[in-house]
Write a protein that binds this DNA or RNA. Structure first.
Lengths: 199, 199
DNA sequence: CGAATAACCGAACAGTGTTAGGTTAACTCA
DNA sequence: TGAGTTAACCTAACACTGTTCGGTTATTCG
């Protein structure tokens, strides 16, 4: 196929299909050849629109982070922290398979830094020292990313035999996958509330 | 080379060299061929001692987790949580490159489950409901794994130009890598203290 | 109308995890 | 001691991976 009348590819289309594959097949399930195939194209063609696979993943990551909401700091810093953490987690948990990539280097993406700048500035304005502000922001990220790795409740096996006998206090752990989503959210809310209250 | 007089390989030796490579070159820096080369052997020979690369990584992970200390629950549950979290983080942060792998599925490794069983049982004995115990354990893991991903302080650039101007409140972010270790530990302690206090 | 550019393709390169089949040393047992 | 088995390594290959090079053709601009 030579140059088509109307272009088959665009950065937007590539990003959205890439994210769909990641959601469906996991992070390892995304290859440039598979991505190209689903776009009706050969792998080499992607490199006219995307610099590298890593860059593509970064772009996908940024688009996800753009929904993180730091408007709560207009109210007060506690509300800001809560709202930021909740929207951050919501963004991550709607695309759990990309979280391991995201967690690698969140501090170099513009979408992350813009929001971190607001958080840090608001905390300092509220009277925290710069060092404290940094630590509070870090602690918030710990809870957000820790919970978004989400491999806690949902990481358990649904087979009772994997636990009964061997782990006396985990005899109901096989029930966890069934309530994973709800339990993960409640665990996150518990950790977040305790953290913000304890500051 | 046929069968050598004294075996060149053993599961132990393979694991320890694998971990050394991961510590030195990162998780992606470990390949079966490189591992074999450093062991003075061809890649295929490894498969007489190791089922798959994934299994090898799991074994390495388990050996790291074996140093997590849950003895603090003999004192009381707060002390148990603190000591468990600290030793967990210490174990992870001495091999930061393997954390992304570890975070994938901690709930299926025997070394993890044995300790989780103690944590859960101790919390229930202390009067928490089973559900609360699960959520508290999850929250603790959030902070441990979130902080061990360690990409927070150390993930920043050391070049001032990456921040000044664009992010007004992050004008000293380039100093973070220099104090990353200390700041990460303090942030972890802050989050941990706030969490345990807030329960 | 001619030239430049943009969009795609085929083929290749070096690397990955893993398997099959072969070779030889060391061990086991009569 | 000698035969047979097993264990430990090897080479070669398979099907993948991300990425690059050079080629072909449709569109667009001067």
């Amino acid at each position: 196929m030579p140059r088509p009348s109307t272009p088959l590819l665009s950065p937007d289309r590539i990003r959205s299909v890439a994210l769909a594959i990641i959601d469906r097949d996991g992070l390892d399930g995304l290859s440039m050849r598979k991505l190209a195939a689903e776009l009706g194209v050969q792998a080499a063609s992607l490199y006219g629109h995307v610099r590298t696979k890593d860059q593509l993943l970064n772009d996908v990551a940024s688009s996800i982070l753009s929904s993180v909401d730091v408007s709560g700091f207009d109210v007060d810093w506690r509300e800001g922290l809560l709202r930021c953490a909740r929207s951050y987690r919501a963004a991550l948990s709607s695309h759990p398979n990309i979280v391991p990539f995201l967690a690698y280097g969140p501090a170099r993406r513009d979408e992350s830094l813009k929001r971190l700048d607001v958080v840090h500035g608001s905390l300092v304005d509220a009277g925290w020292s710069r060092r404290e502000a940094t630590m509070i922001a870090a602690g918030l990220m710990y809870i957000v990313f820790g919970s978004a790795l989400s491999s806690f409740s949902s990481g358990f096996s649904a087979d009772p035999a994997d636990y009964s006998g061997r782990y006396p206090h985990l005899d109901r752990a096989h029930l966890l996958p069934g309530v994973a989503r709800e339990l993960d959210r409640d665990s996150f809310e518990l950790a977040l509330a305790a953290f913000v209250r304890g500051l």
